[in-house]
């Protein structure tokens, strides 16, 4: 009998505690910038796609929910012909972001991905690609890579010497 009354008392006291209930969706919660939510593909500072279709994100993905195909533009620059993420399989682990050598793939603080139809959870490149640089600014992979793919000439990258002149015996 006494314990029942005590329980009623404690329950009553909760009426004066700080409210835990969130006013979602009227009031949106604060999520830190490094929250692992929806995946996007970003662009570099020149506005080009950052993704070089290296397949590392797909390889590291524990649920194998990323599929892409590499293609080359007229300068030889590599980009994904298609880039597909099956979000109905994604576990938002963020391994893809860690594996990405170009900062192209990033997880953003957005989790509102509810769909009535599971097929709508399949995102193609046009759904993933944003127009900005996302969380990481100022990095362009092709400026540090050794290849000439229309972004910079051979030997013009950061930390590179001018191309070797084979006809010159003095070095």
């Amino acid at each position: 009998m006494l314990s029942i009354l005590r329980s009623i008392w404690y329950t009553f006291l909760h009426a004066f505690h700080k409210r835990e209930t969130q006013g979602y969706p009227e009031k949106l919660p604060y999520l830190p910038p490094r929250y692992r939510g929806r995946i996007i593909l970003s662009r570099d500072s020149d506005g080009n796609e950052r993704c070089v279709a290296c397949n590392l994100c797909a390889a590291v993905c524990p649920v194998d929910c990323i599929a892409l195909q590499a293609a080359n533009d007229e300068n030889g620059r590599r980009y994904p012909e298609f880039f597909r993420i099956n979000f109905s399989r994604c576990i938002y682990c963020g391994f893809c972001e860690e594996a990405c050598p170009t900062y192209a793939i990033q997880l953003i603080p957005d989790f509102e991905m509810g769909e009535y139809d599971r097929q709508n959870m399949v995102y193609e490149k046009e759904h993933l690609l944003i127009s900005g640089e996302g969380k990481y600014h100022g990095y362009n992979f092709y400026n540090v890579a050794g290849v000439d793919m229309g972004v910079k000439g051979t030997g013009k990258g950061e930390n590179e010497e001018a191309p070797v002149d084979l006809k010159n015996l003095i070095h």
């Binding site: 929910c65 990323i66 599929a67 597909r84 099956n86």
Partner: peptide
Amino acid sequence: RFSGRTAMNAN
């Protein structure tokens, strides 16, 4: 290490 198993036919 084969990748993309759950996405390659998802389209």
